[in-house]
Design a binder for these strands. Structure first.
Lengths: 118, 118
DNA sequence: CGTTGACCTCCACTGTAGGGGAAGGCGTTC
DNA sequence: GAACGCCTTCCCCTACAGTGGAGGTCAACG
């Protein structure tokens, strides 16, 4: 968590504009630590900052974000399942190519095709 | 395959600078179609353009790229395995959060923590 | 008083694979 | 000969989550 990140979060609405000291330094209230912790946990769960911001805005509006979080997590699970399925399918394809390439004879390679095993 | 993509490939060394007609139009030789097909196949295997360029450069140098392709594919397999493992681990974490959130009581939520299920 | 370190703003850049659109030239057709 | 469409170059924009650096100010320590 660098100060650059704090400014970035502030710019993107995850942190409210902090009060300033007389000399212009940001003076964060204690609750900022809770917000940063939520951001950290959300990022660790693979949520985008925009989604984490939604949670914070709900809480700021005085509403419990529980059901929204549940929906976000459900969507995240679906996204992860889709990504995993895509990667597993790609892995199968690549594993096939790799097996062919490992058993291959470079002399049998057709130069026009540039590479016969891909 | 748009003309934008062709220019991009040319800029990044995957296609040689095409000859031009008298009026400056690019005039691609027939073999370009083979290069584009390799690029397409390589992309479909998840290879980066930089890796596909290596294959093309080997072939252009008159050498069979077979063993290099085999190594690239092995690396790609390892990358995919690592990515899949990361996503599966993340999925496990998120599934746990989601189950907790689905069974949760919004009243039990600690506002200071912003969201108790994340 | 000087020096270091931390903070401020603003701008640009990172990586990936192109896409969008302006301004201008070309070539074919009606 | 005018219109339409494709080609050219050039520059900026996209997503994502920040990072790096320049130039300037400030607080604390010795």
């Amino acid at each position: 968590m660098t100060s650059k990140a704090l400014r970035f979060y502030e710019e993107h609405g995850l942190l409210p504009a902090a009060k300033r000291t007389a000399s212009g330094y940001r003076d964060y209230p204690d609750e900022t630590i809770n917000r940063l912790d939520l951001i950290r946990r959300g990022r660790a769960a693979g949520l985008a900052l925009a989604q984490i911001r939604e949670i914070l805005l709900l809480r700021d509006a005085g509403r419990a974000p529980c059901t929204h979080v549940r929906d976000l997590l459900a969507g995240q699970l679906a996204d992860l399942d889709a990504q995993i399925a895509d990667l597993v399918a790609l892995r199968t394809t690549v594993a096939g190519y790799h097996a062919a390439a490992a058993a291959a004879d470079p002399e049998a390679c057709d130069a026009d095709r540039i590479c016969s095993y891909l």
